[in-house]
Design a protein around this nucleic acid. Structure first.
Lengths: 148, 148
DNA sequence: CTCCCTGCAAACTATTTGCACCGTC
DNA sequence: GACGGTGCAAATAGTTTGCAGGGAG
C-alpha cells in the first residue's frame, strides 16, 4: 500500500540520488502514513519486528536526511522525545496533550495574518514558526476526573 | 538596585520559606533584570566574576525552583541552550533570530481568541502555549547582505 | 542548632559519529 | 564494482543528581 505522501517522499529521494534500501523505505512508510506524530523511538519499535537488526542510528540518520530534503517536519521538544510529521512537512499549529503525549492538528487559519503583521512591526524577516498549545485531550480530561 | 520583578520574586521565595543565599539573590537579579532572555550558561558566566566558586548546577537548581514557583518562564529549545524570562513569566510569543540567537518580545494580541476558538473546536482543555517565530533580525538581515 | 543550599563530580538521556561490512545502483 | 547505507558501540552536550561541607534563619 502506498500513499500520496509516501510516493512524494520516495520521488524526492530518487531525485536527489539517494539509495532506496528496505530500511529507508520502511522508515519513510511510517513517517508518511502514521497519523500520530511518532517519535524516533516509536518508529524504531514499530520496525524492529520486521527488521530485527534495525538500529536507532539508522532511524535518526534517515529522519535527518528526509528532513534536509524538506519532506518531514521535526517537532523538537526540549525534554527529549522529538516527534515527526511526514504528512504535513510545513509549520502548522499543534495540540499537545500533556498527559498522554498525543499530538493533534487543529484547524487554524489566523496565523498567516499574524506573521505578516509581525514583519511590518518589527522589521524581522520571518522564515518559520512554531505554535504549540498544551493541555488535556478530551479523553485525558475525563480520566483525570476519575483520578480524584 | 532593585526592580519590581526582583522584589516580587524575592517575596515569593520568602513566602515559600526558601533561604535567600547570595548566589540565589544574584541569579534572581539576572533573571529579573536582563532584557535578553539569558541562557543558564549566560547567567553562570555573568555571575562567576562576583562568585568565583559559582556552579552551573546551582544556576540550574535555582532556575528550576523559581520556575516551580511560577516566577520565570522557561523557553526550552530542543537543540539545547534553554533561555529564561523573569520579566514576563507567562506564555507569550517570541521572535528568535536564527543567526545571532537574540530573542525579542513582539506585541501580538490575537492569540487569546485563537485559544478560545481551539477549545470550542477540539474539546481540548488548553492550559498553556508556546509561539515562536524564527527569522532574521534587522541587524542580521543587513549583515547577511554583506556576506554575499 | 537545624536544615536547606552549594560545589564538585559523576550520572543521565536523546542524538550523533567513527568504523568496518554490506547491498543498491 | 563503486560508493552510499547500515549496525554496533562509543562519543557528545545540556541538564540533573549524590554526597559532604557550609551558612541562613
Amino acid at each position: 500500500m502506498t500513499t500520496r505522501r509516501f510516493d512524494a517522499i520516495v520521488r524526492t529521494l530518487r531525485a536527489n540520488k539517494h539509495k532506496l534500501t528496505p530500511q529507508r523505505l520502511a522508515i519513510v512508510g511510517v513517517l508518511a502514513e502514521s497519523r500520530g506524530h511518532p517519535s524516533a523511538e516509536a518508529i524504531y519499535e514499530q520496525l524492529k519486528g520486521t527488521f530485527p537488526t534495525m538500529s536507532l542510528a539508522t532511524v535518526y540518520r534517515n529522519i535527518q536526511l528526509i528532513k534536509s530534503l524538506g519532506e518531514v517536519l521535526e517537532l523538537g521538544f526540549p525534554d527529549g522525545g522529538n516527534r515527526y510529521d511526514g504528512k504535513k512537512p510545513y509549520p502548522h499549529p499543534h495540540l499537545v496533550c500533556i498527559r498522554c503525549k498525543k499530538i493533534m492538528d487543529p484547524d487554524l487559519e489566523s496565523l498567516k495574518d499574524m506573521t505578516t503583521e509581525l514583519s511590518k512591526e518589527t522589521g524581522f524577516t520571518v522564515v518559520s514558526h512554531r505554535l504549540d498549545f498544551f493541555g488535556l485531550c478530551p479523553e485525558c480530561a475525563a480520566k483525570k476526573e476519575q483520578d480524584r
